[in-house]
Simulated assay, not measured.
Amino acid sequence: MVEREVAHRMFAQEFNDSRFNLYSNSSLPGNQEVYSPNFLISPTGLKVNRVFVVGVITEVDRLSDQNGSEKELWRARISDPTGAFTVYAGSYQPEASVFLSTVSVPSYVMVLGKVRSYEPGDGSVYVSLRPEEINYVDESVRDRWIVDTAEMTLERLDAFDRFFSSSIGTEKLMDRIKSCNIPQTLASGMCLSLDYYHKDKEYYDSLKCVLKKALCSIGASLDNPEDEPDYESIVQSILETLDDGGGFDYSKYIGEAVSQKIPQSIADSTLKSLLSKGHIYEPKAGLFKVIH
Results as ranks from 00 to 15, higher is better:
7 A>Y: 05
7 A>D: 06
7 A>H: 02
9 R>C: 10
12 A>R: 06
18 S>P: 10
22 L>T: 00
29 P>F: 01
29 P>H: 05
31 N>P: 09
31 N>T: 04
36 S>E: 15
38 N>Q: 08
41 I>Q: 11
44 T>E: 09
45 G>K: 06
45 G>L: 08
46 L>H: 01
47 K>I: 00
48 V>S: 13
50 R>D: 11
52 F>M: 12
52 F>G: 07
60 V>Q: 02
60 V>C: 02
60 V>T: 12
62 R>H: 13
62 R>Q: 14
64 S>P: 14
65 D>T: 15
66 Q>R: 14
66 Q>Y: 11
70 E>H: 07
72 E>D: 09
73 L>F: 05
74 W>G: 02
75 R>I: 01
75 R>T: 07
75 R>M: 13
77 R>N: 09
77 R>C: 00
81 P>Y: 02
82 T>V: 09
83 G>V: 02
92 Y>V: 03
96 A>D: 04
97 S>Q: 06
97 S>C: 08
100 L>I: 08
108 Y>Q: 03
108 Y>C: 04
112 L>H: 10
112 L>M: 07
113 G>Q: 05
114 K>D: 14
118 Y>R: 13
120 P>S: 04
122 D>H: 04
122 D>V: 01
124 S>A: 10
126 Y>R: 13
130 R>S: 15
135 N>M: 05
135 N>T: 13
138 D>E: 14
141 V>Q: 11
142 R>A: 10
143 D>G: 01
151 E>D: 15
155 E>F: 11
157 L>E: 06
158 D>S: 14
162 R>L: 12
164 F>K: 11
164 F>E: 08
166 S>M: 08
173 L>Y: 10
173 L>I: 14
174 M>T: 08
175 D>W: 00
176 R>Y: 01
176 R>H: 08
187 A>F: 04
191 C>I: 00
191 C>M: 11
193 S>R: 03
194 L>Q: 09
198 H>T: 05
200 D>T: 11
206 S>K: 07
208 K>E: 11
210 V>D: 13
213 K>R: 14
213 K>P: 07
216 C>E: 13
219 G>C: 04
220 A>M: 14
223 D>P: 06
224 N>G: 02
225 P>E: 09
227 D>W: 06
229 P>K: 05
229 P>V: 00
230 D>I: 00
233 S>L: 10
235 V>A: 08
238 I>E: 03
239 L>A: 01
242 L>Y: 07
245 G>I: 07
249 D>E: 12
250 Y>K: 11
255 G>P: 03
255 G>L: 04
257 A>L: 04
258 V>G: 08
258 V>A: 03
259 S>Y: 03
269 S>W: 02
270 T>G: 06
273 S>I: 05
280 I>F: 03
285 A>V: 03
288 F>P: 08
